[in-house]
Amino acid sequence: MDGERRMRNEEILAVKNLAAGYGSRHILKDISFSVGQGEMIGLIGANGAGKSTLLKTLRGILPLLEGKILLKGRDIYALPARKFAREVAYLQQHVEVAFGYTAREIVMAGRYPYLRWWERENAADEEIVDACMEYAGVSELAGQTMYAISGGQRQRVLLAKVLAQQTPILFLDEPATGLDVFYQEEIFRFCRELCAAGKTVLMVVHELSLAARFCSRLLLVGQGHILADGTADKVLTAENLTQAYATDVQVVKNPLTGHTEVFTMPEKSDRRKDRLLGIILDGTLSAGTAANQAELRKYGSA
């Protein structure tokens, strides 16, 4: 199915033998993949595996150490900054907004790549900004300062800003992390809607179950490489995940919902751990509590 999809859709982004990292330290090596229009790709992997590094490198924010990144066949480093920003929008992980900018002022920043340096935003820009805010469900926050709004709303304002850039491609670095489950699902649904409309989304995701449900394709990043690439069924296997997360992982298909769910396996009884816990509990770890620990472990494995 994965192969079919790529045949059907036009290739919009191609990564060839990419190496990336900080300074001379390579975190990612020899990464190659291509992205077709309309795909919703989830970048998954353990903390520190290099998912964000990959996304930043693709956006040209971190230097490309080796290889090539082609956007619609053109090297991204040959693209002028403003033109690149009209092709790819990027939502970073933590956005700190200094001073009391209002939500609308932030969304308006998305129009920057369309203006020559002396131009001001015109009525068309205003209209686009209003439409994006309405689509993201944050119209009523327009005049509020970014300090005054909650995490979930804030993330939707930032999504509206990314949409105001009117780019065919969106790079989103953990757009849903730290939000309530409902907000999380909403953001994923939102992205799927955009992909159905023809946009291409590449997003870093932590919640594997959500990634499995909503993304059309997953890239599993680990050990400096892409360990697996394809649909959720293909990528989210116990074998792949155990390798990527360096811990025993179990993958279960929930018969009720039909969704893939991922669990870590509990560690086996560990004398060293018990001893450390004893120190933490100031030597009060009695036989009784040890029994409780054993009990807890059992529940963990359910």
């Binding site: 920003a85 956005v95 907004v97 900018y101």
Partner: peptide
Amino acid sequence: NILVLGDIEARAVGM
């Protein structure tokens, strides 16, 4: 107004 948003944010919109 764009520069104030910080390095990455400003670069992301093409500055």
